[in-house]
């Protein structure tokens, strides 16, 4: 494997993804990520300098919606998705800035 993922990197990626990994999982993730990067390196061998970067698979553009209110108050149903609710709101663990 050409790409070696360091402990710091896996730690950092874990923080960004809000994941807590066990030592075993970390080792496995390091291996997986290394081989993914190897594959990207392989792709990078292709000369794509003359190719427009593609962000969508379909050659479609300009899908718009007119500015008209269609949705009404559907709070009751929306809040069914909340793990906890209070006073018409989603209740979450306390956040402090």
């Amino acid at each position: 494997m050409a790409n070696i993922i360091s402990d710091e990197t896996i730690e950092y990626v874990g923080i960004l993804a809000k994941l807590e990994l066990s030592e075993e999982e970390k080792e496995q993730a390091k291996k997986d990520m290394g081989s993914m990067l190897d594959y990207i390196d392989k792709l990078n061998e292709l000369d794509t300098s003359a190719v427009e970067p593609m962000s969508h698979v379909f050659p479609v553009h300009n899908i718009f919606r007119e500015d008209v209110v269609v949705n009404g108050d559907d709070r009751e149903n929306i809040l069914k998705n909340a793990p906890e609710q209070k006073d018409g709101s989603f209740e979450v663990p306390k956040t402090v800035e």
Binding site: V69, R75, S89
Partner: peptide, 19 residues
């Protein structure tokens, strides 16, 4: 009148989560 990606109202001051 509506949000950027859905047809919910942008009106200010509605009861929580009614839009």
């Amino acid at each position: 009148k509506t949000k950027i990606f859905c047809s919910c109202s942008t009106e200010f001051g509605g009861a929580p989560n009614t839009h």
